[in-house]
Nucleic acid binder design. Structure first.
Length: 284
DNA sequence: ACCCACCCCTGGGCGC
DNA sequence: TGCGCCCAGGGGTGGG
C-alpha cells in the first residue's frame, strides 16, 4: 500500500533508471491498467513511442514522467502497483500490465499491479503539473507546502481529524498507515473533531506527520504486505518501526496498553486506548 | 462548497 | 482438501 515514502522511493528509482532514456515501444497487456485516457490504450502506446523521458516527478501519491513532447506519463500505484526497472530477459511478472522498452536496449520499465487499482495515462501538456491531478494538494515534504493554510484548512473542516489527514485535496501523500502513526505520536484519537483542535495542536500533528514520513523514507518505506517494492524490487524496512498500524493486541510502546483496532471508513484504525482516548463528541 | 457512501480488484488467511 | 467469506484500501464519482 504505497503512500508518500513508498512512492518517493519509486520516484528516485525512476530518476536513476529511466530519465534521459528514449522509449522505443510501449505494450499494454491489460486494458484496465490505462486509466482516464479517453483515446484508449492504443493511443497511449502511440503517444509514447519515440519519446524521451526528461524527469520523474511526484505529488502526494501520484507520479509523472515529463516527456520531450511536453506531455507527461502520469500514474498512481493504487494498492498494489509496482514500477519495476528490470533486464529485458527477466521473466514476465504474473500481473505485468504495461511494458516500456527503450531504444538503448537496456532495462525495461514494467508496470505490474495485482489488484489493478492503479494505472497510467498520458496528459497532454502536463509536463509541469498534469491537469488531471491539479486538485491534489501539495504534500508535507514539498518545500512549498503552506503550513498555516493547512492549519486553517483543518480547523475549517467539520469532520474527524483522520478523515482530514486522508483528504488528498487538503494535504496529500498520507494514507492509512502514516495517518495512524502520526495520530499515535501526537497523540490524538482518529475521531477528534477538527474544529475543536487548537492551532498549536494541528501544527504539532503536522510535524509528527512530517517526521514519520521522513523516517519511513530513510528506511525505504513500509512493505507491510510485500506488495510494495522499489523499482529494483527491494522491500522497505519501516514496518519494524510502526507503533500503531497493524499492531492490534500488542502493547503500546508508550504505556503498554494493548493497541485496539476500530472499523472506520471501510478500513481499520489502530490506536492506543489509553494514550488516544475516544473524544466525548467524536466524528465517527 | 463540502461531506460521505459506494465501487473498482485479487490473493492470502481462516473457519467449517 | 476445498469452498466461501473477509480483508487490505486510494480515489473517482455521484448523491445529499
Amino acid at each position: 500500500m504505497p503512500e508518500l515514502p513508498e512512492v518517493e522511493v519509486v520516484r528516485l528509482g525512476l530518476e536513476r533508471g529511466v530519465v534521459g532514456r528514449t522509449i522505443d515501444r510501449v505494450e499494454v497487456r491489460h486494458p484496465r491498467a490505462v486509466r482516464r485516457h479517453e483515446a484508449g490504450m492504443r493511443d497511449f502506446e502511440d503517444l509514447l513511442a519515440g519519446r524521451t523521458i526528461t524527469g520523474a516527478q511526484r505529488r502526494g501519491k501520484y507520479l509523472w514522467l515529463p516527456l520531450d513532447s511536453g506531455d507527461a506519463v502520469t500514474g498512481h500505484l493504487g494498492m498494489s502497483g509496482q514500477l519495476l526497472v528490470v533486464p529485458p530477459d527477466k521473466q514476465d511478472e504474473k500481473h505485468l500490465h504495461i511494458r516500456f522498452t527503450f531504444t538503448d536496449g537496456g532495462r525495461e520499465l514494467r508496470f505490474v499491479d495485482q489488484r489493478t487499482f492503479g494505472g497510467l495515462f498520458v496528459v497532454a501538456g502536463g509536463a509541469e503539473l498534469p491537469s488531471t491531478i491539479a486538485h491534489i494538494a501539495r504534500d508535507p515534504v514539498d518545500p512549498a507546502f503552506d503550513d498555516e493554510a493547512f492549519v486553517a484548512g483543518v480547523r475549517r473542516r467539520k469532520t474527524g481529524i483522520k478523515r482530514a489527514l486522508l483528504d488528498q485535496t487538503l494535504v496529500s501523500g498520507i494514507g492509512n498507515i502514516y495517518a495512524d502513526e502520526a495520530l499515535w505520536r501526537a497523540p490524538l484519537h482518529w475521531a477528534r473533531p477538527t474544529e475543536t483542535l487548537p492551532r498549536p495542536v494541528v501544527r504539532e500533528l503536522l510535524e509528527h506527520v512530517r517526521r514519520v514520513l521522513h523516517e519511513s523514507l530513510a528506511a525505504g518505506g513500509t512493505s507491510f504486505d510485500a506488495l510494495y517494492v522499489s523499482t529494483e524490487g527491494v522491500s522497505g524496512l519501516f514496518e519494524r518501526s510502526l507503533h500503531a498500524y497493524g499492531r492490534e493486541g500488542e502493547p503500546c510502546d508508550r504505556c503498554g496498553t494493548p493497541i485496539r483496532r476500530d472499523a472506520f471508513m471501510n478500513r481499520s484504525s489502530f490506536s492506543c486506548p489509553r494514550c488516544q482516548p475516544r473524544p466525548r463528541r467524536g466524528r465517527f
